[in-house]
């Protein structure tokens, strides 16, 4: 993304509203009022940013692990079935990461659900559909990554 390819209104929208969208039933009108432009101009500028894939959405970013439940799941899939199985896993809305990895366990994905019962149901459904058991590895403890502190042992 080049800042120069954005018009002034788009730059001002990105500067002002990445963290605090106005909490109003008419958020775009509220943004327009703050910036001294029309609501239609704000909506057009945001639609253009979305079409150019500069922004992915206008909405919430959730704190990881605060609500719901998730797990890292691994499966050992025969090589010739890998892409079909991966496509099936991708089709599930509960899946938010899905990678093939070099290992006997060669398909790794993250499942997110609102509660444990929902998570267990999705895992059972995957096992029934594929005939392959799913190894579920929920996070037990997160070691906080202290960004900006660098050790050089090399």
């Amino acid at each position: 993304m080049l800042a120069s390819s954005l018009n002034t209104l788009q730059q001002r929208l990105l500067e002002n509203f990445q963290h605090n969208l106005p909490l109003s039933p008419t958020p775009y009108a509220a943004m327009a009022e703050q910036l001294g432009v029309d609501e239609a101009q704000v909506i057009a500028a945001l639609a253009d940013l979305r079409d150019k894939k500069v922004i992915s959405r206008i909405g919430p970013v959730f704190k990881p692990h605060r609500i719901g439940t998730s797990t890292l799941a691994a499966m050992s899939v025969a090589k010739q079935d890998l892409s079909a199985t991966a496509a099936f896993i991708n089709s599930l809305p509960e899946v938010n990461h899905n990678y093939a990895r070099e290992h006997q366990y060669n398909l790794w994905f993250v499942l997110t659900a609102t509660d444990d019962a929902h998570l267990r149901a999705v895992i059972s459904m995957i096992e029934n559909k594929t005939g392959i058991s799913v190894m579920s590895l929920p996070m037990l403890h997160e070691f906080h990554i202290d960004l900006g502190f660098e050790l050089n042992h090399s």
Binding site: F62, A86, I89, E94, N96, H97, Y99, F109, T114
Partner: peptide
């Protein structure tokens, strides 16, 4: 475990 192929990567999505 090196990644060979990324099939999907997006934010957590809650299904109510």
């Amino acid at each position: 475990l090196f990644s060979q192929q990324c099939f999907k990567q997006c934010g957590a999505h809650y299904v109510y």
